[in-house]
Nucleic acid binder design. Structure first.
Length: 254
DNA sequence: ATGTCGCCTCATAGGCGA
């Protein structure tokens, strides 16, 4: 089973990129983030053989799951804050696996209510991920985490030192998720490997110089981690004209 | 501070978020 995650930065602007990539790579499941619009082109994906569920809002955020297998939707919001209306969370069961698609808040600038929202969101996620572990569910939690886990996950720590994605608080919270027994799919198969990124700024030719960060992740529960065959960052889409600033990450399970 | 995208609107320029 091949499961991918891709922050598309507007599904309207990226629809042709996404359909072309689906045909080329044929994932069983695709998690998308930053749809950035209310309408979701479910019919387009249906014609390609993918069922879909989307949680959207106007202009911002938005997450969707595409699947060749039936999707049973479990939750469309992250528990723990009734006031939170952001479209950032989608939990479903696919082929017996609990698949969770997250678009974790960016949190910039540091020291604002946005940063506090990010930390609170991570605390809520920690609580859910604790419960899933206790329930013993086979879990795949994927998406745009907006966290640079370690120094090797960016081209140059000095240039990210003031960024919310690099602060000790979110990084500590990310580590706390791993401490629950989840495996960072990419890092577990590529220990110590630097220069492996999923996001590059649009400006200053960051992609061409590989000045990027690794912020799109898959966290796997132990039973699913045992099934992990490969985890690959597909640079192809980021090299296309008019790309998203993120590129897909793909896990393959036995 | 800046760069670049994509969204939106008291819209064809500017603000916001990333």
């Amino acid at each position: 089973m091949k499961i991918a995650s891709w922050n598309v930065n507007s599904i309207r602007a990226r629809l042709d990129h996404v359909t072309a990539w689906l045909k080329e790579r044929q994932p069983d499941v695709l998690l998308m983030q930053e749809l950035k619009q209310t309408e979701f082109p479910a019919l387009v994906f249906k014609e390609l053989g993918y069922e879909s569920v989307a949680v959207t809002q106007k202009a911002y955020n938005g997450v969707a799951i595409l699947s060749r297998y039936p999707i049973e939707t479990i939750n469309t919001t992250l528990a723990g804050d009734e006031q939170d209306s952001h479209a950032r969370f989608l939990e479903a069961t696919i082929e017996g696996i609990r698949v969770v698609n997250i678009y974790l808040p960016n949190g910039n600038p540091v020291g604002t209510e946005k940063f506090a929202y990010k930390l609170a969101w991570m605390d809520r996620l920690h609580k859910e991920m604790t419960a899933w572990r206790k329930d013993g569910l086979p879990m795949v939690v994927g998406g745009d985490f907006n966290v640079i886990p370690e120094d090797i996950d960016c081209h140059k720590p000095a240039s990210w030192i003031h960024d919310a994605l690099f602060q000790p608080e979110p990084r500590g919270r990310y580590r706390a998720l791993l401490d629950l027994g989840y495996t960072d799919a990419f890092r577990s198969l590529h220990p110590g490997e630097g220069g492996q990124f999923t996001f590059w700024d649009y400006f200053r030719q960051s992609f061409e110089h590989n000045r990027g960060i690794r912020i799109d992740h898959f966290l796997l529960s132990p039973d699913v981690a045992d099934r992990l065959q490969s985890c690959v960052i597909d640079l192809g889409p980021r090299a296309q004209p008019k790309p998203s600033d993120h590129t897909p990450i793909v896990v393959e399970l036995r």
